[in-house]
Design a protein around this nucleic acid. Structure first.
Lengths: 297, 297
DNA sequence: TAGATAATATAACTGGAGGTTATAATGAAT
DNA sequence: ATTCATTATAACCTCCAGTTATATTATCTA
């Protein structure tokens, strides 16, 4: 293709002088003279008129100068983008995550990262986990943050960031559940509040119930963890929520944790990524920050 | 600059496969593999994710793909323009010429050339000769067609295309001028019609008069040769015009040539060009056509 | 589970393009 | 004429983009 010849063409045309161009490019004058001649012979077309003062473009040279300039500018733009990306001056981080984890776990990191690298964009998707995995495989997400376990095919990798505990919570209206130790099966008598399907948390809870041969049926399916908490607060029933998300309500005695036996086992959460995927510089940096912070804890 | 590497990048990205790209480009697969690796090392940035099915772009690769594509398209556009120019599929011919020569000499050639090469543009400038010469030197004209002699500086070249004769013409109202031989100085008594200044023809006539110690003064300065002829036809006076431009009127006896002694010497006309200038393919072809036609005559 | 397949990666080699320095040619300015 | 600043030419050299042959890898298939 000999595209480099056009860079010489451009510099010579701009400087109107082969010698000056050679100084600027740190190449010898004969080298450029030869290359320009080569270019002219390739297209069988004189591009410069030479004289003692330097060179000027022929009509043909003029004809194409703007296109060449544009081409080189596009190249420059591309290489500049790479450099900026390396310096985290630009970039996009596309995360798939549940709204609750986003709100309760991710937000502080995004805030912190954005402060350090304000030109890096975040794209947060909060579709159901199954949809997120599809998008991850299609290359539309960089990684997912989700609770484990989930169905991990062998093209996916994952690692833990932390763990969360699902608990049963009630308002002060349910004194008997607050003061006493309760068997899981006893909860059958109470109205249960759960997250609406599809939800991996909901799946997890239901699987836990089945394993313990208890058939809890949800009377209210809340679309969000937030909404569920509100229902529990006004005494609608026994909410199943992640304890970390109701710390405030527990401390302020708006909600009380039910001392259930057996407890719902803790669940880890963390990063799910496509093994074959290459993480952009900004993703790597962001994840580095998150991991470091969670290892220190 | 290694711009050629980006062409490989582009082809590999489009084919999503190094081997396929290598077939298409008629280069071996290892050559491309090596070059892509070189590109990645230059920018310290992975551009492709390799797997068994081929390769796909990393986020960074995707980031710049469009810019690279645009750059290559601009190069393609430029080279295509050169090729088209060589084939006379495009081009511009910028001619400086007087309105009279344009109308009476040039037009048929433009018509003929346009029929053969319909995408070649003509830009005809009809400023005074001095202005045309300036524009020629500035590179805004390809060549001038004008009557000789004119002030030729040594950066200009010229050659003859044909010759024209200036004559005195009158309507049938001036019987005495039509039937008799007339001395130039006798014309002083008559109203004279000349072309308006600035005009090299007017200069030429006046110089001729001065040389012959005759002081003809123009009573009407016509802005165009055409207008002058109309004045002469209605008997306003003795018109000074180029015989070739009034052939029709002479034949139809609307005007009569005055048999003056001495005659105004014939004047050559032809091409004036800038010696250092390079003529584009289409200019050369056009001039070739004009010259050939005028040599045959 | 072994073997075929299809892709990329590596190694060793080679020719020529793109660079070098030195010098010639050119033409304008002094 | 001489100087100056430019481009052109010549002879040479180096390194890199290409080559072929082979290794590696992961997936698909029987």
């Amino acid at each position: 293709m000999n595209l480099d010849l056009w860079y010489l063409f451009y510099e010579v045309a701009k400087n109107k002088n082969i010698s000056k161009a050679s100084e600027k490019l740190h190449i010898s004058q004969p080298a450029i003279t030869k290359q320009i001649k080569k270019l002219e012979s390739i297209y069988d077309c004189k591009l410069f008129i030479r004289n003692q003062k330097g060179v000027i473009l022929t009509p043909e040279g003029n004809l194409i100068f703007n296109d060449i300039e544009q081409a080189l500018n596009s190249f420059f733009k591309a290489t500049q983008k790479i450099k900026d990306e390396q310096d985290l001056l630009i970039g996009t981080i596309r995360i798939g995550i549940s709204t609750t984890l986003a709100k309760n776990f991710l937000m502080p990191y995004i805030k912190k990262f954005h402060k350090a690298y304000p030109n890096v964009n975040f794209e947060i998707s909060t579709d159901p986990t199954s949809k997120l995995k599809e998008e991850l495989k299609k290359g539309n997400l960089d990684f997912i943050i989700n609770k484990f376990p989930l169905i991990i095919t062998d093209d996916l990798g994952y690692y833990k960031l932390g763990s969360l505990e699902d608990v049963f919570v009630v308002s002060k209206d349910y004194k008997e559940l607050i003061t006493n130790k309760i068997n899981l099966k006893d909860l059958v008598k109470y109205p249960i509040l759960m997250q609406k399907q599809p939800s991996s948390s909901r799946d997890y809870i239901e699987k836990f119930c089945i394993e313990n041969k208890v058939n809890l049926h949800s009377v209210i399916d809340a679309a969000s963890s937030n909404l569920l908490i509100e229902f529990a607060k006004i005494g609608y029933g026994v909410g199943v929520v992640t304890r970390e998300y109701v710390i405030k309500e527990l401390n302020q005695k708006e909600l009380y944790e039910v001392n259930v036996n057996p407890k719902i086992p803790k669940r880890d959460f963390g990063i799910i990524y496509l093994k074959q995927n290459y993480l952009s510089k900004c993703c790597e940096t962001f994840l580095g920050m998150v991991e470091k912070d969670n290892n220190q804890k």
